[in-house]
């Protein structure tokens, strides 16, 4: 195993190629503002889904409060950039760090809980964060925080997505990540093999929250305006649905899931009255007919080890 394999070089070239291609298409106007808007939504959803997948898909910790980490990030960056006039890099950094701190604080007490109980506790945590936001005048209460400068652009979005995918997939393929997966599989056996399960569960929450915080910052600094209701229970569910639909424990699945569900959702904008009803039916059908998700726990690999185009689905 080496860093400079053909595969890694090809991947790097592809990553840069996509970046410049989109930049070019935006500059000549082929990618218009409507497509851009959707790209931002998809990108933010990818970050959210991949980071939740680390917590729920890989580590097996059922969380219904992921939107709260996003909210903390959004508000942190909003305050930094709109109220304190800091540059975006500061906003993003503070967003990520404060969200991961929240992940740590919620993680330490609640991770003694398992399964549904953990789910409900994280749901409660999310609602508490939302209610604090609703009642805090400094951040505008229920009206929300306005006049956030738009700093999120293609460069920020794209490289945040790439960094999320890069770091989380590195993590899950290291011994730390394997420890997390072993917790999902059998917590008692993992513990008996020397895995400090409490540490790894909290670590998964901290890393997941870190990226959710970044997603929040990208959101706040794109849409000018944030309010607590945006980050409620339903947002957490939306993220969870992407993860389950894509496949728990599959990073490529989360990416595919984010794209498909964002497309479905933007398509449903055409039926405003029945949008949510149709969405509910689609969710139900997915759960009945494809409960393991599009990808299962498999990953889609573009290049094989030698660097040739393989384009097939491989186990790990």
């Amino acid at each position: 195993m080496k860093i400079l394999t053909k595969k890694n070089i090809y991947t790097l070239v592809l990553v840069l190629l996509i970046y410049f291609l989109v930049l070019l298409l935006s500059n000549v106007g082929i990618i218009d503002s409507y497509i851009q808007l959707n790209m931002v939504i998809v990108g933010i959803n990818i970050i959210l889904a991949v980071s939740l997948n680390l917590i729920t898909g890989f580590t097996g910790q059922f969380s219904l409060g992921h939107a709260a980490f996003m909210a903390i990030g959004a508000y942190a960056s909003g305050i930094m950039t709109a109220k304190l006039g800091q540059p975006f890099i500061v906003g993003v950094a503070v967003a990520a760090l404060s969200a991961s701190l929240a992940g740590l604080l919620i993680g330490i007490p609640t991770l003694r809980l398992r399964g549904d109980y953990l789910a409900i506790a994280t749901l409660g945590f999310g609602e508490i964060i939302k209610i604090i936001g609703l009642n805090n005048d400094y951040v505008g209460g229920a009206i929300g925080l306005n006049d956030i400068p738009r700093y999120t652009n293609w460069t920020w979005l794209y490289f945040s997505v790439i960094a999320t995918i890069f770091i989380i997939s590195n993590f899950v393929k290291s011994y730390h990540g394997r420890a997390c997966i072993s917790i999902r599989e059998d917590e008692i056996a993992a513990e008996a093999m020397g895995v400090n399960t409490t540490y790894y569960k909290i670590l998964a929450f901290v890393i997941g929250a870190f990226f959710a915080g970044i997603a929040g910052a990208l959101y706040a600094n794109y849409f000018y305006f944030i309010k607590p209701d945006t980050f409620g229970f339903m947002k957490s569910i939306d993220i969870l649905v992407i993860v389950v639909f894509g496949g728990m424990g599959s990073i490529t699945g989360s990416i595919v899931g984010a794209v498909i569900l964002s497309v479905i959702s933007s398509f449903l904008q055409g039926f405003p009255e029945l949008r949510m009803v149709i969405y509910a039916v689609i969710l139900f059908l997915i759960m009945v007919y494809r409960p393991q998700g599009v990808m299962g726990d498999k990953e889609f690999k573009l290049f094989n080890k030698e660097g040739g185009l393989s384009g097939n689905v491989s186990s790990k």
Binding site: N170, Y175, R178, I181, I188, A189, A190, A192
Partner: peptide, 30 residues
């Protein structure tokens, strides 16, 4: 109590867990 959805190799690598020496930073940035 094997880790059912993990391969044989991965199962045994979990046993090796405490003998790994590289830190978290090394793993995040490979």
């Amino acid at each position: 109590r094997l880790f059912k959805e993990m391969t044989v190799l991965e199962n045994v690598l979990i046993g090796y867990h405490n003998n790994f020496k590289y830190n978290l930073f090394t793993s995040l940035f490979r």
